[in-house]
Simulated scan of single mutants.
Amino acid sequence: MSDCPHEFLNPSGWKAAKGYANGMVAEGRFVMLGGLIGWNADQEFETDDFVDQVKQALLNIRAVLDEAGAKPEHLVRLTWYITDKREYLANLREMGAVYREVLGKHFPAMAMVQVVALMEDRAKVEIEATAVIPNG
């Protein structure tokens, strides 16, 4: 591995992944984040807007990463759970802007899953994350 904390995996002959990495290899200290949703530090929703909840969930991920001494570029995997695929697709441009604002231009391996509901009734998105802080 290079000085980079991770290596993107895209098999030879495959088109480049769109908005995410096909896979990643990393060495170091693992940081696992449970599903974080779009509520604030007091566990209160400030909005029912999908994009705003995504932004808050991403800010929550940043806060937990900060607590571990990690940065957004240490993320190697995100698993998104959304309650409405159509709402997600209708807001791609806004979501991309919010993502880049909060996490920058780092796109780890990602999966997106539509679910019937999340545990918190007002939640529209939940995101699990894995980060690897490089050794040394």
Results as ranks from 00 to 15, higher is better:
Gly69Trp: 01
Leu118Ser: 06
Arg77Leu: 13
Val54Lys: 01
Asp48His: 12
Gly69Cys: 04
Lys124Tyr: 00
Trp80Glu: 00
Glu73Pro: 06
Glu101Phe: 04
Ala97Cys: 10
Ala68His: 10
Glu67Asp: 14
Arg93His: 07
Pro72Gln: 01
Arg100Cys: 06
Val102Leu: 06
Tyr88Asn: 10
Leu92Lys: 15
Asp52Ile: 02
Asp49Phe: 09
Trp80Gln: 01
Ala70Cys: 05
Thr79Met: 07
Ile82Gly: 11
Glu87Asn: 11
Arg29Gly: 05
Tyr88His: 15
Leu75Asn: 06
Tyr88Ser: 06
Met32Gln: 07
Asn60Gln: 03
Asn40Met: 04
Gly38Ser: 14
Glu73Asp: 15
Asn60Ser: 12
Met95Gly: 01
Glu94Ile: 00
Gln56Cys: 13
Gly104Thr: 03
Glu73Arg: 14
Ala97Lys: 05
Asp48Tyr: 04
Leu59Met: 13
Arg62Ala: 10
Ala117Thr: 14
Asp121Gln: 12
Leu78Pro: 01
Ala111Ile: 01
Val31Leu: 12
Asp48Ile: 12
Gly69Phe: 04
Ala68Trp: 06
Met112Val: 13
Glu73Tyr: 08
Ala111Ser: 15
Glu120Phe: 13
Gly96Pro: 00
Lys124Leu: 08
Glu87Val: 04
Val54Phe: 14
Leu33Pro: 02
Leu103His: 08
Arg29Leu: 12
Arg86Asn: 15
Gln56Phe: 09
Ala109Phe: 11
Val98Asn: 07
Lys71Met: 11
Glu44Leu: 14
Val102Glu: 07
Arg77Glu: 14
Leu78Glu: 07
Phe45Ile: 11
Gln53Glu: 08
Trp39Gly: 03
Val116Asp: 13
Thr47Ile: 09
Asp49Asn: 15
Leu78Ile: 08
Thr83Arg: 09
Val102Ala: 11
Glu73Asn: 12
Arg100Lys: 13
Gln114Lys: 09
Met119Val: 07
Asp52Val: 07
Asp49Ser: 15
Tyr99Thr: 02
Arg77Ser: 12
Val98Arg: 15
Asp66Ser: 11
Met119Thr: 08
Val102Asn: 05
Asp66Tyr: 04
Met112Thr: 05
Tyr88Glu: 09
Asp66Pro: 04
Gly69Glu: 09
Lys124Ile: 02
Thr79Cys: 14
Lys105Gln: 08
Gly35Arg: 09
Ala41Arg: 15
Gly35Ala: 14
Gly104Met: 05
Ala97Leu: 14
Val113Pro: 01
Ile82His: 07
Leu89Ser: 12
Tyr81His: 15
Phe107Pro: 09
Tyr88Gly: 02
Leu75Lys: 06
Asp49His: 12
Val98Pro: 01
Arg86Ile: 03
Glu67Ile: 04
Gln43Met: 11
